[in-house]
């Protein structure tokens, strides 16, 4: 599935771009992730915990900068993980492109996400909505991190997506109510 996010960082393109290439800081923004440097340069090892309603998964895997296009100010981060228990896996390619927006920087992130195993089978609509929510959180964290100096070295808290799932349901309920009420009026 493909997810698209866009956000604005209150910093110039150049510092934003340099920060974006600091993979360790970027990877820390993945919800529920803990990272450590890998054996070779630019290759991180890490785990990521995800709770999806009644299902909890821990993925173990890698993150790396897969493409860097200096001229186009576009970078692709590739994340791959395998469930530590169970047969499933998840992989994502996050393509971020920067553009100047007055004194600030607009970041467009396009994510190709593929998931196998239990979470893929658990609720088509929910999987998509929760992934979208995760990406929104990731984008927000990136925006915050990029705007902040110095770097906050603390790992991101393991994310419990139960509230996210609840939020998704609440959003759906609200929009349903709006439609129902809209019809009356």
């Amino acid at each position: 599935m493909t997810l698209e996010n866009e956000f604005v960082v209150s910093a110039g393109v150049e510092p934003t771009w340099r920060l974006l290439l600091d993979l360790e800081r970027v990877a820390r923004c993945l919800p529920g992730a803990t990272v450590e440097p890998g054996p070779d340069d630019g290759h991180l090892l890490g785990t990521m915990r995800v709770k999806l309603g009644p299902i909890a998964m821990t993925y173990k895997g890698t993150a790396r900068l897969d493409e860097v296009d200096e001229a186009a100010r576009t970078a692709v981060v590739a994340v791959e993980g395998k469930e530590t228990k169970g047969q499933g896996s998840a992989s994502a390619r996050i393509r971020s492109t920067l553009a100047a927006d007055s004194a600030a920087t607009r970041v467009r992130a396009e994510t190709q996400l593929s998931v196998t195993g239990r979470p893929a089978q658990f609720g088509r609509g929910n999987m998509q909505d929760v992934a979208a929510k995760m990406m929104a959180d990731f984008a927000e964290c990136l925006s915050r991190t990029l705007a902040e100096t110095p770097v906050d070295a603390a790992p991101a808290p393991a994310l419990d997506l139960a509230p996210a799932v609840g939020g998704v349901f609440a959003d759906r309920l609200r929009s349903l109510l709006r439609r129902l009420l809209g019809r009356r009026s």
Partner: peptide, 16 residues
């Protein structure tokens, strides 16, 4: 029975 682009069955419960 819906499959995603990677061949995952994404309607494998009565939710979907």
């Amino acid at each position: 029975l819906v499959y995603d682009d990677g061949g995952q069955l994404v309607s494998a419960s009565f939710l979907d």
